[in-house]
Design a protein around this nucleic acid. Sequence first.
DNA 1: CTATCTTTGCGTCAGATTAACACAAAGATG
DNA 2: CATCTTTGTGTTAATCTGACGCAAAGATAG
Lengths: 225, 225
Amino acid sequence: MKPFSSYQNPSLAVDLVVFGYSKQQLSVLLLNRKEAPYQDGWVLPGAFLQMEERFRDTCSRVLKTKLGMDDVYMEQLYSFDEPERDPRGRAIAVAYYALVNPARVAIAAGSMANDVAWFNIKELPELGFDHRAIFDMAVQRLRSKITYFPVGFELLDEQFTMPELHELYECILDTTIDRRNFRRKILDSAYIISTGTKREGAQNRHPDLYTFNKQLKQNSFQINV
Amino acid sequence: MKPFSSYQNPSLAVDLVVFGYSKQQLSVLLLNRKEAPYQDGWVLPGAFLQMEERFRDTCSRVLKTKLGMDDVYMEQLYSFDEPERDPRGRAIAVAYYALVNPARVAIAAGSMANDVAWFNIKELPELGFDHRAIFDMAVQRLRSKITYFPVGFELLDEQFTMPELHELYECILDTTIDRRNFRRKILDSAYIISTGTKREGAQNRHPDLYTFNKQLKQNSFQINV
DNA sequence: CTATCTTTGCGTCAGATTAACACAAAGATG
DNA sequence: CATCTTTGTGTTAATCTGACGCAAAGATAG
């Protein structure tokens, strides 16, 4: 299948904002560029679309080959088209954001090249291209989304405790939320199911374990900031 | 500025979901195609990106040249990339939706070609390409957006009455909203300002006139369905 | 011109929701 | 064993919401 319009089209790429949550820290995955432009600078991982490839496929390919990750939750964010966004020439980027639990996603041992690193989202280096704008929009989207959709479960283990979920929300929304009111709201929403078991070997008391309710139908909760 | 990637890229186009509100009806603008594919079928207006053009520029160009409209509110919706979405070949579409007040937007007289028509959103013909999916997403986005952002004001006159605003919301959300509770919520939100004047020559009592508050800072209301 | 109807602005009130906070049991700490 | 921290559960007052009443300003009709 060949393109049919009369002029040479801009390059088409995807850029990925990969969020990872670990040890009460929300981080992003950045790549240290080896070539110009922005040589030695940090950028979001990305790739040009290959023939017949869909955006989502390109994203998966990047996650797989550059980062050794499989089976990652992702969502289209926005398309960026400033003519000057890539000094090499006209390039359109369709940005996606991905949510990764580093402990859960199959990250092949040693597969993460040494030019890849996690950065706490509050301590980001300067980014090349227009990647700072892309990142900012991704954070905004994640914050907004998590208040009405249980997107955060992608970042936790299969089973998690209420304090863990609570901490995740406080971390992403960068605010404090009353522990007891949060609990009530989440439980009322039926987004999570108690497994009936408790975590063993915890530091403190053994908190109840929960699972994400995959049967849920519609949005029915609202965490206010 | 030339594209630099090694292979021929897909075609890049924008597709536009143009909403118009008039006489208590929410409508979309459709185009009757003259050529194959989908000859004689209805589709969303759109165009291929021209060199150096940004998505938004392409949208403006379509609105201007095909529909004779200027200065229209629009927002990027989503990017569509199914390989088979255009039978002519690989084509990526970045969809935008636009909000138009037919009485307000400068529509050059007679400039709307006779192959263009407004359709009530509830009585749409079959659409070519994947345009039905694009339209559906646009409606969904508009509905969602209007519940927390005063996007609807783009569809009304500069000055409008409370009953008009109320009707607009009922129409877009396709539901009934208690008139008195709606009034209270909107007024509390400070999204609108009373002009202190009343509409003359109305059919019934002369209702108060309001204006959209352009000074507003943040989202602060929530219309529930 | 007057009786009646419709539209519009403004209120009321019971029930639901929320934010703030108390308390006690389970385990950790030393 | 005394004390501290964590976690599950409640309570309560303030607020918000939804359902609805009412009356004044026109419109409508005989």
